[in-house]
């Protein structure tokens, strides 16, 4: 047993706080928007130039001028605002965004993140990921605990090119939750997914970690 994509997104949503401005990456992080607790005010930033992202439009009401960073059609909210890419990344790089939830390929025990490039494979580009990890106050990574091959992804050091060094605060995988604190404190396992044992997660993790289940 392990957490599903939805359960991982729901766990990530526990990191949200009332009044937060948040940037969600593509994939599982996008699902976090479905788990914002009722009554909590969270404003979603889209790095292509929008604050206050609304839901997908109804069929027939798509607007080619209104997309998110994943190039999907979206809608606006009464409080939404639009701005240029330079203003958008000034928000991100200037530390004005409280939380970013991103996908990952590898994470190290020091809080390094690799999520943009596999040498020898087709390179698509880093988009805004390097800016987000460098500038956002708190960075949460959501990813599968191991590769499809079974190889661990939580490592002593990343083997893939980095997106950022010492940038990850919290890691949520399908097997558990790790406090990383950008490598300032020892890597600590704080939660196990339903039905996952300490033996299993230890066997599937290369990085050394302490255990403080809460």
């Amino acid at each position: 047993m392990a957490w599903t994509r939805e359960q991982m997104a729901a766990r990530a949503a526990q990191e949200l706080r009332d009044g937060f401005y948040v940037n969600l990456g593509i994939g599982i992080p996008t699902l976090v928007a479905n788990y914002i607790p009722d009554g909590m005010s969270v404003t979603l930033q889209s790095e292509n130039g929008m604050l206050g992202m609304g839901p997908f439009p109804y069929e027939g009401e798509e607007d080619a001028d209104l997309i998110n960073a994943g190039k999907q059609t979206i809608t606006e909210l009464p409080e939404s605002s639009y701005f240029s890419s330079a203003d958008s990344f000034a928000m991100i790089r200037g530390g004005h965004i409280a939380l970013s939830i991103l996908g990952g390929m590898q994470v190290s025990e020091k809080g390094d993140l690799a999520n943009w490039m596999v040498p020898g494979k087709v390179v698509k580009g880093m988009g805004g990921a390097m800016d987000l990890v460098a500038g956002v106050k708190r960075v949460v990574v959501v990813m599968d605990h191991v590769e499809k091959s079974g190889a661990p992804k939580l490592l002593t050091a990343c083997s893939l090119p980095l997106t950022g060094a010492r940038v990850v605060d919290l890691l949520i995988t399908d097997l558990g939750v790790f406090d990383i604190a950008r490598g300032k404190t020892p890597l600590t396992l704080t939660a196990l997914a339903d039905g996952v044992t300490l033996e299993e997660i230890t066997a599937k993790t290369e990085a050394r970690f302490e255990v403080a289940l809460t």
Binding site: E47, S84, S85, A86, S88, F89, A90, I92, R93, V123, G125, M126, G127, G128, A129, M130, D131, G135
Partner: peptide
Amino acid sequence: EFNPQGTLAE
């Protein structure tokens, strides 16, 4: 030449 998106904008 890849640039991070915010670096490119700036």
